[in-house]
Design a protein around this nucleic acid. Structure first.
Lengths: 230, 230
DNA sequence: CGCTAATTTGACGTGAATCAAACGGTGTGG
DNA sequence: CCACACCGTTTGATTCACGTCAAATTAGCG
């Protein structure tokens, strides 16, 4: 029922970890993988359950999150297309991985991927690179969360989204859609929904940003926003 | 001047990434590495400078940190013995890496390590594992920083230190030394020195912890501390 | 059109930041 | 050995930002 992989039409075929493989190698790996579709809100991995598979995100977006002891969700990372999910070396999933929007993934059994790592050194290298990038992203997010003022957190998060939405690595997109609800943004930053809402309203009043439709954000004054992110 | 490596007496010889190598392979790698000593406060890598080497921490402790636009230092990670520092795939260091205490490291040129990765698949695998663990640790720290109350942040950080100080992976050490000053703890958590100090005093008054000397902490009531960390 | 969920806005109290001072430890010079 | 300055820490008083509670508004959907 789960369709076989069609790497030829894969939109992330030259950005994902598997892109470093030779055509023949990738075909071999493709034989042991399968596609999986996930609806918005559906869970890929749940914290605590044994996890024996890994995946590359092809389209959509995922969040990595934990539930603290009071049941509040805390978002630890966002995963974009070409991102990789999967912790070998760890028997149980530590965090929930949930679809933020309808998503499609390319799933492999953990063991098959481990064998592939051993068989294709380039793949191990590519996964190492990707994991180092994830680590870097995680630390950037942490730097953001560690700011003392709510204003700074929200401004910096918006800037981060603008960066992620842009094609160019340096310049933020002038207009983009928020990938998260207010509540999710609040969970990410250690704030409340109300505070996030107020800070966005305030940034809009001050002219740093403008809202375009429900979740659209326009960077009216990027310099002012950067300053607010201080 | 920098002494050659003496893997035979290395205290992390069977925990560091290089422990997966065969004796002959490790000898070959050791030939291109060298020891480096770092005094407390000395910088290993500075953000922005080109970085062409990587290292395994042998003794001591390091911090990974950034300076935000106002010059406040934000600690992003702690590195313990057997930990690995080094981002291949990235021309410039993104963060400062500074010794928290007198430390000794085993340093390799980035290129030499990259060649070793290609030559020894087990090494690539080990580094992937270590990086995934760092990623996990980073997300744990983030979950901690994302808590809304200062009390919870401080309590959770203390628990984290107790875990790290313990030999056993599950149980926290009953007595341990704080690796960080108040100011560094505050920077890590997005709080101020005063708030950290007050929360520690409060946890002590409530009987969750007791101070033993200058930086010693005793877990008088671990359950109470966990509860405070909620 | 009416229901439900998400967002915004308001009023209020609390907790953390800020400003400021006192208290230790540690090293230095008298 | 003591006086003194220096640094990290603790403690206090005050201000203000964020959390909380609650209501109004808007969006989404059948």
């Amino acid at each position: 029922m789960n369709p076989a992989l069609a790497c030829a039409e894969c939109p992330v075929r030259d950005r994902a970890a598997c892109s470093v493989l030779e055509p023949g190698e990738r075909d071999a790996l493709a034989k042991v993988g399968r596609m999986r579709e996930l609806g918005r809100g559906e869970t890929l991995f749940a914290a605590g359950e044994p996890v024996s598979s890994c995946a590359t995100l092809v389209t959509g977006a995922l969040k990595v999150a934990t539930l603290d002891s009071e049941g509040r969700e805390q978002i630890l990372a966002l995963i974009h297309p070409a991102g990789f999910i999967g912790e070998f070396f760890r028997p149980f999933a530590e965090h929930d991985v949930i679809a933020l929007s309808d998503s499609s993934l390319c799933v492999f059994a953990g063991q098959a991927m481990e064998e592939a790592i051993d068989a294709y050194p380039a793949l191990a290298r590519a996964l190492l690179r990707r994991t180092q990038e994830d680590l870097h992203a995680s630390r950037m997010l942490q730097a953001l969360t560690g700011k003392t003022s709510g204003r700074g957190k929200v401004a910096a998060l918006l800037l981060g989204f603008a960066q992620a939405a842009s094609d160019s690595p340096c310049h933020p997109a002038a207009l983009f859609e928020l990938p998260l609800s207010r509540g999710e943004m609040a969970n990410m930053l250690g704030l409340t929904i109300e505070t996030v809402s107020r800070q966005i309203t305030r940034l809009e009043r001050e002219g740093a940003i403008a809202r375009r439709g429900k979740r659209g954000i326009e960077l009216a004054d990027p310099a002012l926003l950067s300053q607010a992110a201080a």
